[in-house]
Simulated assay, not measured.
Amino acid sequence: MSPTLPGRRRILRRVLVLVLLAIFVLYLVLPAALGIFAVLPLREEVGAPPEGFREVTLTSDDGIVLEAWYAPPDNGAAIVLIHGAGASREAVRPYAAMLARHGYGVLALDLAGHGGSGGPTNRFGWGGTRDVGAAVEFLEAQEGVDAIGGMGLSLGGEVLLGAASEYPQVRAIVADGATQRSVEELHALESERPLYRSFTARVLYGVVQIASGTAPPEPLLDSMAAAESTGFLLIAGGNVPQEVAFNEVFTRTAGERAQLWVAPDAGHTGAFGRHPAGYEERVIAFFDTALLSGPGEEEATGTGSA
C-alpha cells in the first residue's frame, strides 16, 4: 500500500531537513571546527638533536622564544629548515641529515606555537615571517655563515615564500608542497574563485582570523614577485593535481628565478620518500648553484618538470 499524501509530505520534510542539516554541517560547522583546531596549541614532541647538531634558542621581534637545532656549515652556507603544519623539527630530521652530509649548516626551526617554541599556534603560519626573521638574525651572527638559504615542507615552504620579499638574505628557497594559506592565495587558481568553490575556505580562514586575532599575511605571489634576487626550487607531488596547479602559478610568477619539479607518483611532501636520490640531487644542485657559486659563476635557473 502506497503512502498517503500527508505521509509523503512528512517523508519529504524529513528528507529536506536532513539535506539542509548536511549542508549546514559541511559548509559551516566543519570548516569552522577546522578553523578552531588550527589555533589549538597541540604540540608535537621533540627528541634529542641529531648527531652534529645542538639545541639553540632564538627570539623573534615580538618577544617569542623559538627552539631550534643548529649545525654549523663546512661550506659557508646555512639553510633555515622548517617543518609542516602541526609538526616540529622532529619531522625534518632526514632533510637536516641530507643537507649536513653536503657541508651545509642547518637551522631546523620550530615555528611559533609548534614543537618546543613559545607563542600562539597558527597552523597556517600567519606569523611565520617573524620566525624567519629571527632565524636570519641568528645565522648572520654565526661564524662561518656567508650565505643563507631556506627549505620548507608544506606550511614551512609557504612561510619561506611569504617571507622572501622581507628577507632577501635568504637567497635561495626550496618549497616542497607549498600551496595556499588564505582566501586571497586560494584565488590564485581561477578554478577556486567562484563562491561555491571558496565558501568553506572563507568560513575556515574567517574563524582563524577571529580566534587568533591576526590577519592573513602578505600573499605568496606578491612576496615572490617582490623578491627579485631570490631563487626558487618548487617541488609538487605529481599525485596532487591542485598542488601541481599552485606550483605552476608560483613558477610563472617568479619566471626565470624559479625551477619546478613535479615528482612522479608522489603525494603531498612525498617526493623525498618516493625519489630519495633524485630529490637529494636536485636540492643540493640548486643550493650549490645559488649559494656557493662565485661572482659570474651562477647558472641561470629555468622552469621545467619531470
Rank of each mutant, 00 (worst) to 15 (best):
L34N: 09
G35N: 07
I36Y: 02
I36G: 05
F37W: 14
V39L: 00
R43D: 01
E45C: 06
V46L: 08
G47S: 07
A48M: 11
P50A: 11
P50H: 05
G52P: 04
G52L: 13
V56L: 13
V56R: 02
T57F: 11
L58W: 10
T59N: 12
S60L: 14
D61K: 15
D62I: 11
D62S: 14
D62L: 12
I64P: 02
V65E: 15
V65F: 01
E67A: 15
E67G: 15
E67L: 11
A68H: 08
W69F: 08
Y70Q: 03
P73W: 01
P73K: 10
P73V: 11
P73C: 12
D74W: 04
D74T: 08
N75T: 11
N75A: 08
G76H: 04
A77W: 00
A78K: 04
I79Q: 03
I82H: 01
H83G: 00
H83K: 11
A85W: 00
S88V: 15
S88N: 11
E90C: 10
E90D: 14
V92R: 04
R93H: 06
R93Y: 07
P94F: 12
A96N: 05
M98C: 05
H102A: 06
H102V: 03
G105V: 03
G105F: 05
V106K: 04
V106S: 07
L107V: 02
L107Y: 00
A108Q: 02
L109I: 13
D110M: 15
D110Q: 03
D110S: 08
L111V: 10
G115P: 01
G115N: 05
G116F: 01
G116Y: 03
S117L: 06
G119K: 12
P120V: 03
P120R: 14
P120L: 13
T121V: 15
T121L: 09
N122M: 04
N122G: 05
F124I: 15
F124T: 15
G125P: 00
W126L: 09
W126F: 08
T129M: 10
G133D: 07
A135M: 14
A135I: 14
A135F: 00
E137N: 15
L139I: 02
E140G: 12
E140C: 04
A141P: 05
A141K: 14
Q142R: 14
Q142E: 13
G144V: 03
